[in-house]
Design a protein around this nucleic acid. Sequence first.
RNA 1: GGGCGUGUAGCUCAGUUGGUUAGAGCGCGUCCCUGAUAAGGACGAGGUCCCUGGUUCGACUCCAGGCACGCCCA
Length: 1060
Amino acid sequence: MSLPGLPAKFAPSIFRGVSFMFKPVSSKTDFAAMEEGVLAFWTEHSTFKKSVENRPATSEFVFYDGPPFATGLPHYGHLLAGTIKDIVPRYQTMRGHRVERRFGWDCHGLPIEALAQEALGLAGAPAIVEAGVGVFNEQCRSMVTTYVEEWEKTVTRMGRWVDFKNDYKTMDKDFMETIWWVFSELWKQGRIYKAHRIMPYSWKLNTPLSNFEAGRNYQDVQDPAITVRVKLIGFEIKDAYALVWTTTPWTLPSNLAICAGADIDYVAVSDAESGEVYVLAEARLSAYYKKEAEYDVLKKIKGADLAGLTYEPLFDYFNDNPNSFRVLLDGFVSTEDGTGIVHMAPAYGEDDYRICRAADIPLVEPLDEDCKFTAQVSDYEGQFCKDADKAIIKRLKDEGSLIHQSTIQHSYPFCERTDTPLIYRAIDAWYVRVEDLREEMLANNAQVHWMPEYVGEKRFANWLADAKDWNISRNRFWGSCIPVWVNIDDSNDTVCISSAAELEELSGQKVTDLHKHFVDEILIKKDGKTYRRTPEVLDCWFESGAMPYAQQHYPFENKAHFEANFPAHFIAEGLDQTRGWFYTLMVLSTALFKKPAFKNVVVNGLVLAEDGLKMSKRLKNYPDPLHVVHEYGADALRLYLINSPVVKAESLRFSEEGVKHALRHLLIPLWNSYSFFVTYANIDQWKPGSSKLGESSNLLDSWIESSLANLCQEVTAAMDNYDLQRAVRPFVAFIEDLTNWYIRRSRRRFWKSEDDGDKQQAYATLYHVLIELCKIAAPFTPFIAEEIYQNLRTDGMPESVHLCDFPTAAGAKRDVALETQMRIVMDVVVMGRQLRKDRDAKVRQPLRRLDVVSRDSGLLNQVGELKQIIVEELNVREVVFGDDESELATLSAKANFKTLGHKFGKQVQVINQAVQKLSGNELHAVASGKGLTLKIGAETFELASEDVIVDRIPKEGLAVLSQGALVVALDLELDDDLIREGLARELINNVQTLRKTSGLDVTDRIHLKVSSDEAVREAVAAFDDYIQSEVLALSLETIDTEGETVDLNGHACVINIEKA
RNA sequence: GGGCGUGUAGCUCAGUUGGUUAGAGCGCGUCCCUGAUAAGGACGAGGUCCCUGGUUCGACUCCAGGCACGCCCA
């Protein structure tokens, strides 16, 4: 179906009005717009729903989605995790599994409370209580969904399939009821206890933080560092003072003891300036005195000698506190800073609390919930503790107790919500006993497949091995409630509730909502006693850790289904969840089910801004995610993110260039291949099925099918190992093979006018490769895969690429020998091009002959077609294979250390020397695959041919290159015929350029006139037809003419073209 | 202070059990092709594989110690 003498594709006009098999495709496309079209298609056809439901319920692949706080817009970290959470489920779906994907929302906790406080203008907990917990909580509830719509939009636009309609929210009654059940199970195990612990406390939020929440926000701050003296009573030197150092002067009014180290050396010195006697660690003398003359050592003592002494309190607020104001001993005291004597305020320091408790000293707590002094410390009543530092220091100075004053800069934990410094203080809190679960958790963790491995084996395992009991209570309002009711007359008499029904039964009241403002109103009356709920709510990490059970309302519903499908096959989150979600999942699943909660986990790293800093809205050091998506498409962004070490917990510097790169090097070439196929398939009216696949006699076809099979194998292996980066990488090589070898080498097969079998095979092969490639790419780049698939699919095929099975049978099409041969052909071509370049022989100039020589005749046994590829690529008239390189190159040899090293160990060096001295005959023998016996001194070594690496060194003066066992030689001599053809090609090239610069359409016919010298005229005469057909000339005259003057290999030539 | 990780070309990164010539892309330079064209290809320049020591016939790779950076913890 072509015009005579013209390639088929130049005859599009005659097809006008004919309906195409495939929707015509522009080589230029707007990827973002294409993707939006695909999104609409998925919506219209409920493709996601079908992809889940088409797979058997008996073959579930269980995925848990870690719930994000919905208090802000998704950032790159979310997009990255979301992409991982999309690729794996899509892949597993195509592998035949049913993968439910429910989105989850973390609704409770400080982030949302902070927003509500802001909205209601409430400063702290007392204000909330005053306004009413109900009012506050309902405000929280109403704000939870503020960003939900934006999230859904962005997540969807990224191509992530996840069920938003059937989502779970941690504030749902069912979810919260399961939380009660989980808590009650722990309660039954005796894992829940209440204790006084020193906790970081946010005075702004009036709540303690968990041990892994604190310290997420360390800041460098300056604090006072003062040294005060306390007068010792009963020390052998009269009127001696112990020197005490602290960075928290506000804790001094609460001082109840001082502490020394038993084995530390102390000295009593006479201070030259004041004449007073001070006791401090000997090692600290230099910190207080510049010169030895400034003091006089009166006595040296061990810390143990100080034990039991008492001292005069600095303040008189707690003079009557039992057992107080003594010198205690403990190993934690060091001489790294301070004086070697530590002041103890047991309510405000972990060590203080522990040591004073052991010494039976009851603690005193003169701070209220805002961390302001109470009436107990009357002088500072109402002052915020840290603000009292100045006044306290001044007073100590006035009283002569202050010995030294300075400031230190150190790193101090801040509240991450309010950016205020945390105060360590004694808190009544509920704990889950975790420490006795360490071994069991480690054993469970050993069953988990981590990607990357080290996060699980080292980081997480270390964390588990050192797990501390978990503070799960928060003195807040919006959260799941601790389901413990306490006898109002006896705090040791408690009832733990495990379900709403149980509460209804015990209280006789209807339970409609499990939030604080509802359940706090419900009293339990039992045996004449009244129970009221303990006021705390639960840490929201408890809820996310309980998500596997709570999202299914287990055990109230879905009991059998849950138990048959636990643990999950797969979860994915960021490295920061090591201490967060990964941990709480593990704690609860170990305690409840003695199992890990997940079998496979992909841990992603941090996405940084391009400058290596954290992404910051303030600095604007990163592009808006939606901008990137609209500019390059979600596929490009997904590819960029996945093809980076960030999927292996390393950090990634986000670069817009990188996204562009993914587009240009993978997606555009893929699109161009597709566009190429559609263009010519339409021109030829080719239909799928019109030629049978797999019967191609063309080696290019077998080769690309084999490469495709290889791709499939590599991707499958990597995905089954959850190594996403490795899964993406082979696409690069395949796209390269497809575009720059298969299609480039096959173009003429599609263009030729005769519709022979070879052309049919080319279509069938490229069609099949594109379809299968779409399937393999579908989990990674779901949009472009769908778009291409939609246009190529036939009625019998699934309606979406995402409903297809992942290719597997392709393994049968591997032909490794052919892949190797093609690789050699490519090598030959590269060498040929290099030779042309070296010898300044441009590819347009035809050459007579290329010799390809190898002793391994099997290397290129399918010579016919492979030869033709070389002929065309290198523009030579013939390629000649041979097996004797002796005229082209000389042989040389070196040892193959890899094989010899194993056989002969340290003798490889002598053997290498001997090998390099082998004679010509010996070299030929080895090169022909024979073994070799080496005699070195008294020893004899038997070498196999593989033990010696033979190199070919091209002979001087010849156009020869060698690589491995191959030698190629180019015949650079030109005869008249070659010169004429070279000129003709130059002419064609120049005419083509002129056509383009003249603005002609590619299908326009021309009349061509050429004026030049004798040589060019002869060339034109000899290649008249060829030239005309190549440049679409209806006539070609060699005649004097006006026009563009060009240079053809040194011959001036005037070209004139005229549109026909 | 502790745990974990990272350190390879100007930049972003590969490098699978140790093997003597360490790779890719981008960028740069030179050139080619130009009917897949927001392309494509060839060639080239560019490296103390963070440092020091050790093990080994042989170390980017294994071990020890250090340095720098990051994450987490105290």
